[in-house]
Design a protein around this nucleic acid. Structure first.
Length: 274
DNA sequence: AACGCGCCCTGTCCGC
DNA sequence: TGCGGACAGGGCGCGT
């Protein structure tokens, strides 16, 4: 699920339920989804009220009253699921349960258990956040800012877009999509991008992320369905997961290549080195 | 310092 | 039908 638009969608969905709600009891039965000892984590949560729900990069952020942040990195298959009313059977792949003062239950569900969560102090959170690149949808993120960051590396642009220290929140889907919209070959070395290309990329990143949020994100996978938030942006994808299919712009075949052990999709005709 | 790779874990899909 | 291998929206931690 989760790149910036999906995490933003999840945060918006959870906000009305969680803000002002208190965690009565926390249980996690898969230790590897928690950073540090599980009992330390659950003890840090129990009795605490969630003041604010937010997002930074692809991290969910639940601010606790009196200080501290409950953060979650959903990685590939992490989800939060809300259950109201009577407790039903345990959802498949549930790894943790959080009983709320309101009587509802929040389940953490994660098939591959690559997700991580923890509770850290506000200072530690700020320090962690400071290591991440700028939020691409904030006003302060300019083409000039992007250009400065891209000049500093010789790596290939697609891989740079995935580096959360350079720019926050972009993952494998939206990296390919933004590069297609900007007409840039994903194999181009970042420092070689021209001024106009950087400006097109800046605009493309913002446009694709905004449109994806407006569609509640991209939902793949047959198994599991989230908090009711299945997005629809998958219908608007132009290259991602479309290997050998016709490019929506020129009709030529979309290509799949591997960069940094991840798939990259692009149209060789529409995306040139500069 | 910057970069590239292996690996964490579980499920699905495809070819033989 | 069964089985092995590739692959999946992420990112840490290691070696060079």
């Amino acid at each position: 699920m989760p790149e910036l638009p999906e995490v933003e969608t999840i945060a918006r969905g959870l906000r009305p339920l969680l803000e002002g709600n208190r965690v009565e009891r926390a249980d996690v039965w898969r230790a590897n989804v928690v950073v540090g000892p599980v009992h330390v984590f659950t003890r840090a949560l129990e009795g605490r009220t969630i003041e604010r729900v937010g997002r930074r990069a692809k991290l969910l952020r639940f601010d606790l009253e009196g200080g501290g942040v409950w953060w979650t990195s959903l990685r590939m298959t992490g989800q939060y699921l809300v259950e109201s009313g009577e407790a039903g059977p345990l959802p498949p792949f549930a790894r943790g349960r959080f009983d709320l003062e309101s009587g509802e239950r929040l389940y953490y569900v994660d098939i591959r258990t690559l997700g991580k969560m923890g509770v850290i102090g506000s200072d530690a959170w700020r320090a962690r956040s400071a290591e991440l690149g700028p939020e691409p949808l904030e006003r302060s993120f300019t083409a000039r800012d992007l250009g400065r960051r891209l000049k500093a590396t010789r790596r290939r642009i697609k891989e740079v877009l995935l580096d959360q220290r350079v720019i926050a929140g972009i993952g494998n889907i939206y990296a390919s999509e933004a590069l297609f919209r900007a007409g840039i070959d994903p194999r181009t070395r970042a420092h070689r991008l021209t001024r106009p290309a950087i400006e097109r990329l800046h605009a493309a990143i913002r446009a694709v992320l905004k449109e994806a949020i407006a569609s509640s994100g991209t939902t793949f996978l047959s198994y599991a369905d989230a908090t009711g938030e299945s997005g629809s942006f998958q219908r608007r994808l132009r290259v991602y997961d479309r290997a050998e299919e016709a490019c929506r712009r020129c009709g030529g075949p979309v290509r799949r290549i591997v960069q940094g052990q991840r798939s990259t999709y692009f149209c060789p005709r529409c995306q040139r080195r500069r």
